[in-house]
């Protein structure tokens, strides 16, 4: 590290090199600012447009609103029944996330702490699920659910969401549990605790960080999920936010600022989550995808 500093210092005595370096730095900074702007712009445009009247939107589509009004938000909320959609999305997302975390942790506990004959096979079996394109299961799932009368219920979304998220949940939590030393459990066994006791009182509390990552990932995925909701939910009163949005935008296809307001309402919860749990979301998504 020390040598590094000396080395850099020597080089920066050379004026040409220094100048070249600073030009390079300026180019880099300009590039990064421009690029970030392009990444944020669509969302920025969404939010400013949501505050404009439709006339103003057509006249000055890119300017800031001349006056900031919440009319669009109120109208979109009422017309699209976004309140109902938000409740549906919340129910499906929360119940699905709880299922995912609990089943993931339980399975991970068994896979990380017990050795048995079929263990390797079961791990591989769960791994396989990450290769399967979700949309190729739509037709059979639709027929099966139709058969057992599960279409147009919350379960039609909760169960598939959980099932498809399980592999990632299991791998993330298993990896974390394997790194926890076994002393605590051994002490608990001596104290006469059963497996459920160990799982609930020792393993779960110690695995909270991994479970939090899984929960955040599951939450985002379920909240934003579209294709299952599109196929399995027809009942207007059960529609989730993404589904309501796509239908609403068809129905009010010319009232752009109204649709923008509806979208803004749907996006706000995830943006808030992002602001608070940024690091965890980034790390979790990467860990989840690399494991796959």
């Amino acid at each position: 590290m020390r040598k590094d500093v000396v080395y850099e210092a020597n080089r920066s005595f050379n004026p040409v090199f220094r100048q070249k370096k600073s030009i390079f730095k300026v180019i880099k900074t300009v590039f990064l600012i421009t690029f970030s702007f392009c990444m944020i712009y669509p969302l920025y445009w969404l939010f400013i447009s949501a505050f404009k009247s439709t006339d103003e939107f057509f006249q000055f589509p890119y300017a800031l609103p001349s006056e900031w009004t919440f009319d669009n938000f109120v109208r979109a909320w009422n017309l699209a029944d976004l309140g109902g959609a938000m409740i549906n999305s919340t129910v499906v997302t929360v119940v699905g996330t709880i299922f995912t975390v609990f089943l993931g942790a339980l399975t991970a506990y068994v896979l990380s702490r017990f050795s048995f004959k079929w263990k390797g096979f079961i791990m591989l079996f769960f791994l396989l699920g990450m290769l399967i394109p979700i949309h190729s299961t739509l037709v059979p799932l639709f027929s099966i659910m139709n058969e057992i009368g599960m279409l147009n219920t919350y379960w039609a979304l909760i169960l598939p969401y959980t099932a498809f998220e399980l592999p990632i949940a299991i791998f993330l939590i298993t990896a974390y549990m394997s790194s926890i030393p076994k002393e605590m459990e051994e002490a608990a066994v001596i104290d006469g605790a059963g497996y459920w006791g160990i799982f609930f009182r020792i393993m779960l509390p110690m695995t909270v960080p991994a479970m939090a990552t899984v929960a955040i990932l599951a939450f985002l995925r379920y909240w934003n999920e579209y294709i299952f909701a599109l196929v399995f939910i027809n009942d207007a009163s059960l529609k989730t936010l993404p589904l309501s949005l796509s239908i609403f935008s068809d129905g009010y296809s010319t009232d752009y600022s109204l649709t923008m307001a509806a979208m803004a309402i749907a996006v706000i919860p995830t943006v808030i989550m992002y602001v608070f749990f940024q690091e965890q979301i980034m790390k979790g998504m990467v860990a989840g995808s690399v494991k796959g």
Partner: peptide, 9 residues
Amino acid sequence: LPTVISTVV
């Protein structure tokens, strides 16, 4: 940021 936005949006 775009990664966490709903794909419908």
